[in-house]
């Protein structure tokens, strides 16, 4: 049962990874590509790590429990640092004078 839930979570996470990758190709300019690259990838990391943590815990020992805690710590760390990294890249772009793409009409 737990194994099926974790497999489902990993697959949904991969759908988000796929969306982030396709967005990096399809969107028109740097700023809007960053929406897909930074944020959809964060969600993909969250979901697939949750699936992996569930799979670690399914035979319960102390070592496995500590491994699952470490995986959760990685997710918390990614959730704090990913907006900061995105903001650093955007800030470099703004200071270089890169103009955002807008609709012509």
């Amino acid at each position: 049962m737990i194994i099926w839930i974790s497999a489902l979570l990993i697959i949904i996470g991969f759908v988000f990874f796929l969306g982030g990758s396709l967005g990096m190709i399809r969107l028109p300019d740097f700023y809007s590509r960053l929406h897909a690259a930074g944020m959809l990838d964060t969600m993909g990391v969250f979901l697939s790590m949750a699936g992996l943590a569930l799979y670690v815990v399914h035979d319960f020992t102390l070592g496995n429990f500590l491994s699952a805690l470490k995986i959760i710590l990685i997710v918390v760390f990614v959730f704090i640092t990913s907006p900061t990294a995105t903001h650093a890249i955007v800030d470099a772009g703004v200071r270089a004078g890169l103009k955002p793409w807008t609709k012509k009409n």
Partner: peptide
Amino acid sequence: ANIHVLRLVLSRDMNSRINP
């Protein structure tokens, strides 16, 4: 919001739906 952006990116008429 993730589901919204995912549907936006995977939709076929993406260029008419986005407005940065």
